[in-house]
Amino acid sequence: MVELVIEARKAALAPGMDVKRILPFRLKRMVGPFIFMDHAGPVEVAPSTVKTMDVLPHPHIGLSTVSYLFGGRVTHRDSTGAEQVILPGEVNWMTAGKGISHSERFEDPAMLAGGMLEMIQTWVALPEKDEESNPTFDNYKPDVLPVFTDTGVWMRLVAGNAYGLKSNVKTHSPLFYLHAELEKDARFGLPQEHTERAVYVARGSVEVSGKTYTPGQMIVFNNGADPVISSPEKSTILLLGGEPLGERFIWWNFVSSRRERIEQAKADWKEGRIILPPTDNQEFIPLPEEKSKPAGSGPAPPALS
């Protein structure tokens, strides 16, 4: 029924910005095409430290980054020329393909001081045929995302297909990604459309086969399992998964099916061949000091998504 329970680990992205890191995990590098997952917040910092929390321009290859907010606002800028303030319930879907750079800045000090920022960031690995595609960026408003409801259950389909619904968000491989709000004593089953499936508890708790799972835990289910998931209290969870893509190498912000492509991406960033966002090009994050070779679907140095 339950294959594995992943406990989130603490990771520091910037002063005052500690996140819960769920994926990758040493015993489960990916769930479907999802290769990375961070849960940030709620973040509360003094206004004087807001500037130090900005994520400066940095590169990606071979993946899509997905930003989804429970609260707050973040300004995204990237090398395609896109500039977007993302708000709660929206989806920022950036596909790096052969190479992109972007920044994430927190330009509302009052929001951070008030503890309103809470964000989920995931990376979705690309199929081999799309790894060298041209980079793209799309923002999707909440009103274009399908909603599923049942007794005590509200779910927004962030991407993919599940429960007979299909999202308009453009993806590259079969997957599903859902934000669910559960009332006390709600009960539901997992979507059956996909091979690999997991539930992440953001707030509250859920029960599966008599066991209780709490915030910061991801429950990974065996293929074909059909559990009943219940909520002993009001809870917020994320459901995600899809079809596996095969082994991926990951190092810093780079993902690829080919080890040598990671090495090329390092050189490209170091030599300036991945351009900076045109409206945010005065500073950037340099290539980290190399301490290890890319690991097959293994954990990377602290990533900046």
Rank of each mutant, 00 (worst) to 15 (best):
S79N: 11
S79R: 11
S79I: 06
T80E: 10
T80G: 04
T80Q: 07
T80R: 09
T80A: 10
T80W: 12
T80F: 03
G81H: 02
G81E: 03
G81Q: 04
G81K: 04
G81M: 04
G81I: 06
G81P: 05
A82F: 12
E83R: 15
E83H: 13
E83L: 15
Q84A: 14
Q84C: 08
Q84P: 00
Q84R: 11
Q84D: 10
V85W: 07
V85K: 11
V85S: 11
V85C: 12
I86F: 12
I86N: 11
I86E: 10
I86P: 05
I86H: 09
I86W: 04
L87D: 02
L87A: 13
L87Q: 11
L87H: 14
L87R: 15
P88E: 07
G89P: 02
G89A: 11
G89L: 06
G89E: 05
E90V: 04
E90K: 01
E90F: 05
E90R: 09
E90C: 13
E90S: 07
V91Y: 05
V91L: 06
V91E: 04
V91K: 06
N92P: 07
N92I: 12
W93H: 08
W93V: 12
W93G: 01
M94S: 07
M94G: 06
M94H: 10
M94V: 14
M94R: 04
M94F: 00
M94D: 13
M94N: 10
T95M: 14
T95C: 02
T95Q: 12
T95W: 09
T95A: 01
T95P: 06
T95I: 08
A96K: 01
A96V: 01
A96M: 05
A96D: 08
A96Q: 04
A96I: 11
G97D: 03
G97L: 00
G97F: 00
G97N: 09
G97C: 02
G97Q: 00
G97H: 06
G97S: 07
G97T: 01
K98S: 13
K98D: 03
G99Y: 01
G99L: 03
G99E: 00
I100C: 03
I100Q: 02
I100W: 06
I100D: 00
S101C: 07
S101A: 15
S101H: 03
S101W: 05
H102T: 09
H102N: 02
H102Q: 05
H102P: 14
H102F: 04
H102M: 01
S103I: 03
S103K: 01
S103L: 06
S103E: 08
S103G: 12
E104P: 06
R105H: 13
R105S: 13
R105E: 13
R105A: 10
R105N: 12
F106E: 00
E107K: 08
E107H: 01
E107W: 11
D108T: 12
D108W: 12
D108R: 14
D108P: 00
D108A: 12
